[in-house]
Nucleic acid binder design. Structure first.
Lengths: 172, 172
DNA sequence: TCATTGATTGAACAGCCATTCAATGGATGG
DNA sequence: CCATCCATTGAATGGCTGTTCAATCAATGA
C-alpha cells in the first residue's frame, strides 16, 4: 500500500481511506482491467456493416491490441489469475464479463456454422477460441521471444481458416 | 514457512535450514511440478508401437490426467505463472522443459503434415496446441463448472480432426 | 472574517513472518 | 561409557506492512 500510494503521489493513509482496504483496492483494480477489456471489443463491434466473421476479427484484434496485450498488463492479469483460485471475489468479477463475451462469440459462430453447413458446436468453438486467447497470453508472458502478438494472431487465423475455410483466410 | 513446516510435521527452523531460503523452497517446488509433468508424458511416449497421432494423443492424455490436472495443482501452477513475470528464475526452470515438449510435438506434427499433404506449419500447430492446453487449464481453474477435463479434450480433438481429418477422429 | 466541512497527512500501532542461532536430542562408532 | 557428529528445535530478532487516528490544511459559504 505504501509504494502504491507513493507512485500515485499521495499518502498511504489516504489510499486506505478511499478504498476500504487493500483487498478492496485490488478488487477495484481487477474490475477496472476487466471493464477496459470489455470496452475494447464492445466498441469495435458497434462499427456499422460488420458481418459475423468481421466481428470475430474485431474481437481478436481487441484481444491482442497493444493497449490490452502488453507485458505490464499481462503480468497483472496473471497475478490475479494466480490468486483467483483462492478468492471467489475475483472470480465473481470476471465471470459475467467473460460469459458475455463467450455468448457473443458463440452467436457469431452459430451464424457461420449454419452458413458453412459445418457440424461443429458454436459454444465449443467459442470456448476453444477463448482458451486460445488465454493460452497465447500466457505464452507471451512466459516466452516473449517465441510468442509475439502477430504470431498469436496468425496461428488463430490458421485455426479459423481450417475450421471455416469459406469465411476466414489465413493471415498470409 | 511456518505453516508449510507445520503441514510437513517439522519445525520452521528446519525448513529454512534444509532449503536455503523461502525462495529456494519455492523454486524447488516449481521444479518438482515441472519434472512430474515431464515424466507423465515422457513415460507414455515410451510405450511401443505408437504412431505419430497416438503419441500426440498420449501427450494430451498426460496433460489432462487427474494426477496432473486437478484443482489443487492448477492453482499452484498459476500461482507460479503469476509470479513468473517478475522472476527470471521461474521462467528459467520451465523454459527447457516446455521447449523440449514443444519440439517433440512439432516433430510429430511434421510427420502428420507430410503424410496429409497439408500446408500447415508444424511448429505453429504445436504452439497452438500448447496454448490450447494452457488456456483450457486456466478456464478449468476459473470456471470449473463450465470447463471439465473431458470437455477440454473433446474440443482439442475437434480441433485436431478439422486440421488433420485423416489422422484424428472427434471424441465419441 | 470566521466557522464548518471535508480532504489529507504522517506517525504510531500491532501483527506477521523469514531467518538465525544457541541449545538440545539422538545416534553412531570406538 | 564416552565423544563426536548431525539433525532438530524453538525462542528471539528485525524488518516489513496494512490499518488507524488525532492533527493539520484548504476550501467553502455565510
Amino acid at each position: 500500500m505504501a509504494s502504491v500510494a507513493r507512485l500515485a503521489g499521495l499518502s498511504a493513509g489516504l489510499a486506505n481511506f478511499h478504498f476500504r482496504s487493500k483487498d478492496a483496492l485490488l478488487e477495484e483494480t481487477l474490475r477496472c482491467l476487466a471493464i477496459e477489456h470489455r470496452e475494447q471489443w464492445l466498441t469495435r463491434l458497434q462499427a456499422p456493416d460488420l458481418d459475423a466473421p468481421a466481428k470475430i476479427v474485431a474481437v481478436i484484434d481487441a484481444q491482442f491490441h497493444t493497449s490490452i496485450c502488453n507485458r505490464k498488463k499481462l503480468a497483472v492479469w496473471f497475478a490475479f489469475f494466480g490468486e483467483a483460485a483462492y478468492r471467489k471475489s475475483y472470480r465473481r468479477i470476471t465471470t459475467s464479463i467473460d460469459a458475455e463475451r463467450l455468448d457473443v462469440l458463440a452467436d457469431l459462430f452459430d451464424e457461420i456454422i449454419q452458413d458453412e453447413e459445418s457440424a461443429l458446436d458454436p459454444k465449443g468453438v467459442a470456448r476453444t477460441l477463448e482458451s486460445l486467447f488465454d493460452g497465447f497470453w500466457l505464452n507471451m508472458l512466459m516466452y516473449p521471444d517465441q510468442f509475439s502478438r502477430e504470431m498469436a494472431k496468425a496461428q488463430i487465423f490458421d485455426y479459423l481458416h481450417t475450421s471455416f475455410p469459406r469465411h476466414f483466410a489465413p493471415l498470409s
